[in-house]
């Protein structure tokens, strides 16, 4: 059995899409039945429509890519009108990722989504490297006080399970992980993309219109493994892994390092069938190794 549990949320398997790499599921539904997934995590939404960053927004790097989308989306109202009615048709959990400019906006989004039955859980994006917050342009999740504030504000406004999505751009994940747990997060998702710069030697220009972007893909897997393992050891709430998961072996490595579920991101662009193939691969591994419950593997890294 490959099912897993994140707080009160029961997932048929530990595989979710990663926010921003799967849209709202519609395009991928042409390739496979979304019901094969443990959950669909939607592209981060904000209160109001956002236009995103200027192009180019994508560049290829060894074993990965750098993006600077800038949270382009049509806002929560549009999302509720168009994405949720579509996703309702599938036998999977729907996780909605949210972002705001301050704790109040996060709270307002949570309040709006709380009344939507199709929404199974909310992921709080505290770590998008492509939007700047405050004067010192740091990420919310780089500050355990901001993180705690935002998570607490979301907690106040919803009874649904909430995940806090964190950045690896900190020297120690423990304080922010503990702060989110204390503020009522039901799970932690980590890691988001790593702030990065790609340049073109010929033109002497940055590859991206926004200059900086976020690195994702296989290149960041070892970094993500470290943070998942550290967070797993720092808190009691479940960990959802994200970062460079390209195949079932990668996914299983994250479970070994403490993940209760995994998110598939950039791999969707390389192989549109990555998600269902990873589900199959995990099932096969469990069968072959007579693993009856994910907890027999989860966090069993031998030191």
């Amino acid at each position: 059995m490959v099912k897993t549990k994140i707080a009160s949320l029961e997932l048929k398997n530990p595989v979710m899409s990663a926010s921003g790499t799967f849209g709202y599921g519609k395009e991928f539904a042409e390739f496979f039945d979304l019901g094969q997934l443990g959950a669909v995590v939607c592209k981060t939404i904000t209160l109001k429509q956002r236009f995103g960053n200027k192009p180019p927004r994508i560049t290829d790097t060894p074993y990965g890519m750098v993006n600077s989308i800038g949270l382009e989306n049509n806002g929560v109202e549009y999302f509720i009108k168009t994405a949720l009615p579509f996703l309702k048709n599938y036998d999977t959990k729907v996780v909605v990722s949210i972002a705001g400019n301050n704790a109040a906006e996060y709270g307002e989004l949570a309040k709006i989504l709380d009344t939507e039955d199709t929404v199974s859980a909310i992921e709080i994006n505290l770590s998008c490297p492509n939007v700047a917050h405050g004067q010192n342009k740091c990420l919310f999740s780089q500050c355990h006080i901001s993180s705690q504030d935002i998570v607490a504000q979301v907690r106040k406004n919803t009874k649904k399970p909430i995940f806090a999505k964190l950045s690896a751009q900190v020297s120690d994940i423990t304080p922010v992980a503990k702060a989110c747990e204390a503020a009522g997060a039901d799970a932690l998702t980590l890691i988001n993309t790593l702030p990065a710069l790609a340049v073109d030697l010929k033109t002497r220009k940055p590859m991206l219109g926004n200059v900086f972007g976020g690195l994702s893909g296989g290149a960041i897997k070892p970094v993500a493994l470290k943070f998942v393992w550290e967070a797993y050891n720092a808190v009691k709430i479940p960990i959802i892994a994200s970062g460079g998961i390209m195949n079932a072996t990668d996914a299983l490595e994250f479970i070994l390092c403490g993940a209760s579920a995994v998110q598939i991101g950039s791999a969707n662009f390389v192989n549109p069938l990555a998600c269902p193939e990873i589900v199959k691969g995990i099932e096969t591994c469990f069968e072959e190794n007579k693993i009856k419950d994910i907890n027999e593997l989860r966090g069993k890294l031998k030191l």
């Binding site: 921003g20 790499t21 395009e27 592209k43 989308i69 382009e72 662009f269």
Partner: peptide, 23 residues
């Protein structure tokens, strides 16, 4: 330059003359 190729990632914008959206 594009990543997904099917309208998922919002990675390949072109600026348009449109009231509803910039890209």
């Amino acid at each position: 330059k594009m990543a997904c190729g099917m309208g998922v990632c919002q990675g390949c914008p072109v600026e348009v003359k449109n009231k509803d959206t910039k890209y």
